[in-house]
Each structure stands twice: as structure tokens, then as C-alpha cells.
Amino acid sequence: MEFITKPLPANKRVALVAHDHRKSAMIQWCSRHRTSLQKHYLLATGTTGGKIEAATGLKVEKLLSGPLGGDQQLGARISEGKVDFLVFFWDPFEPMPHDPDVKALLRIAAVWNIPVACNSSSADMMVQSALMERSFGREVPDYQCYLKQR
């Protein structure tokens, strides 16, 4: 696979996902970083987005609930270049019936080289990084080259 450099914009599209037992941690995190997050476009799986919006007043585009297809919607947006940063508070202590969806979402985020935070410590570091407020380049698969080679 060939790669090209594409920029992540200064105003990020931030996807927020949290499993049931991690939703309160996500809400607390969003509340702590409200000032920073309101500068960016937020989207989330349905239940998580609704709870964040209600608790923080942040505007959040709500997709379907994760188990009903919201994880796949986010994955599609990542593939289309419409998500720049994924904050995914997954629960390492609970078995999940939609575990394949979780793995697929993390895989597609890795393929398209977007920053992923899976807990509040990594999310804190990323949202407070100087790169959060400015554009920077990242390597992504060169899909057009891939199509030509096929």
C-alpha cells in the first residue's frame, strides 16, 4: 500500500463513544474540556451524544446507538475522511455482544491514522496537545493509487 500525507484540520471533527459503564466518565471528561471541545465539531453514537448534550450543553450530532449501527456509521465517516479524532471510552471489564463492531471501529481508525483515545488520561493528553488547535499532516493510504494498481 502506498501512502500520502493529508492534513487534519485545525477545527477537528471529534467522535465521542462510550460504553454504558463508561458514559459517566465521558460526560465528566467532556465537562472538564468543554471550552476546548466547543471549538470543534462533535459527533457521537446516539445514547452517548444525547447524554453529553444534556449534561454539558455542547452541540453534538447524534448518530444511531452503537449496537444499532452507530459504530458502523462512525467507521464509514472515518473512511470518508469526516472524523479527525476518536475518543472511545470502552469498558475493559464488560463482555460486549457487539465486540466485533468495536474491533472494526478501532481497526478503521488505525487504517486511516486518526488519533484515538481510549481512556481519560490519553484523551486529556490529546485534547491539551498544541496539535488539537492547529492543522497537521498525517499519512493515510493512497486510495487512488490503490485503485489504479488494481
Rank of each mutant, 00 (worst) to 15 (best):
D91F: 06
N113K: 04
L106N: 10
A117R: 13
P92C: 11
K103V: 06
R77Y: 02
E139P: 10
A104E: 11
G70E: 02
A104D: 10
V83E: 00
Q128T: 14
S121C: 14
F85D: 04
P141H: 01
I114F: 07
E94N: 12
M132P: 08
E133G: 04
D101Y: 08
P100K: 00
S122D: 10
G70A: 00
V83A: 03
S79Y: 03
A123P: 09
E133T: 02
C118T: 13
V127F: 08
D71G: 12
S79R: 01
D124I: 00
V83M: 05
R107P: 04
S121D: 15
V111F: 06
F93E: 15
M125N: 05
F88W: 03
G81H: 04
M96A: 14
F136M: 02
L105A: 06
A76S: 12
A123D: 13
P95A: 10
R107S: 04
A123V: 01
D99C: 11
I78L: 01
P92K: 00
P95V: 05
A110G: 11
R77D: 07
V102D: 01
H98T: 01
Q73R: 08
E94K: 05
W90D: 15
R77G: 00
D101G: 06
A76W: 15
S121Q: 15
Q72C: 04
F93H: 15
I114A: 12
S129L: 03
E133M: 09
S129N: 08
Q73I: 04
V102L: 10
M126I: 06
V83H: 00
G81S: 03
I114Q: 09
I78E: 01
W112H: 03
V102C: 07
P92Y: 03
R134W: 13
K82E: 07
D84A: 03
S120P: 13
A110T: 08
S120E: 14
R77N: 03
G75A: 05
A123Q: 10
N113S: 09
E133N: 06
L105E: 04
I78P: 01
A104T: 06
A117H: 13
W112P: 09
D71P: 13
L74Y: 03
S121W: 15
A123I: 10
D99N: 11
